[in-house]
């Protein structure tokens, strides 16, 4: 009798720990909505869809988040362009071509890369990468979207490698055997059979990597220069959504328009990562079932 009760209590404990994350996600959405929502009523949503972000001004404050969205988008796209060849290439090598001893050496390093704190990566970027970029492209300043993208790529690569590697590894051996038996070379088999078969998993890996890239703050804030301009050039300074929140939240007057605008930026950011994660999970699930 008592045992059954105990069992129930333990089960309840585990259920509650497991569902905490759902509760937290929901309450974050509610909280952001509550703090940011009033901005949509006053001064209104069209204020948000402006091209100027000037939160502190003696003339007129503007809270247009388009430059911030554009900044985040540019840095993310650039980061993914850099990450995909590196990540997928490394995954193919580790899972298909590397000898066991090479794999033993490569894998721990990938994991170490995943564990480096972002502020350390940012510091490395500011002191090493920014001057190199400035020198390589003879720019007036190395504080550019490209610098941010390269650091973010560095952070996304481990995610992309480990999930892609998983996907490539779980391609049935019979596919490869059939391909080789038909006279295809090893490289032909990899590029025409294995990688296409693992493609949904690789796509999911890239999406999860993108999620990490969009949400990353510290490293980006240190190297992108944070000028709120809309640009498609990797050699210009951009201001990301995350850096804006991190830089401005500390000093903003509680309940002011600026405060609410920052929460709206937070909502946009959360929605973006949420959608990416959902889609990635979907893709991954379908692929595993298939």
């Amino acid at each position: 009798m008592e045992r059954a009760w105990k069992e129930k209590a333990i089960k309840l404990f585990f259920v509650s720990t497991a569902s905490t994350s759902i509760l937290i996600v929901l309450s974050i959405f509610v909280f952001l909505g509550k703090e940011g929502g009033p901005f949509l009523a006053e001064p209104g949503a069209d204020e948000l869809i402006g091209t100027r972000w000037i939160p502190v001004s003696f003339q007129k404050e503007s809270y247009g988040i388009l430059p911030l969205v554009a900044g985040s988008a540019l840095v993310t796209v650039l980061a993914m362009i850099l990450t995909i060849p590196f990540g997928v290439g490394a995954a193919v090598y580790i899972s298909e071509l590397a000898r066991p001893i090479e794999r033993e050496i490569l894998k721990p390093f990938v994991e170490v890369l995943a564990g480096i704190p972002s502020v350390v990566i940012g510091f490395f970027g500011l002191v090493m990468l920014v001057p190199i970029i400035k020198w390589c492209f003879s720019l007036s300043s190395g504080l550019t979207a490209l610098a941010g993208a390269m650091l973010l790529g560095l952070m996304a690569i481990p995610t992309v490698i480990s999930i892609s590697e998983d996907a490539i590894r779980s391609v049935p051996g019979s596919y490869k055997a059939a391909s080789l038996a038909l006279g295809a070379s090893r490289m032909q088999t990899i590029w025409c059979v294995t990688v296409p078969a693992a493609l949904p998993g690789i796509i999911a890996a890239v999406m999860l990597g993108t999620g990490r890239v969009i949400g990353e703050t510290m490293a980006v804030m240190m190297v992108t220069g944070n000028a709120a301009v809309i640009t498609a050039s990797p050699f210009e300074s951009v201001r990301t959504m995350t850096a804006t929140i991190a830089a401005e939240m500390g000093e903003v007057a509680f309940g002011s328009d600026h405060y609410r605008a920052l929460f709206c930026v937070g909502i946009v950011l959360l929605l973006a990562t949420f959608v990416l994660n959902m889609v990635a999970q979907r893709v991954l699930k379908r692929y595993r079932m298939g």
């Binding site: 944070n226 000028a227 709120a228």
Partner: peptide, 18 residues
Amino acid sequence: QEMVLNKQDYMQDAKLLP
């Protein structure tokens, strides 16, 4: 901004460093 810019806004391209 107050003393030098006479309360005008900074240029948008200015890099804001943390």
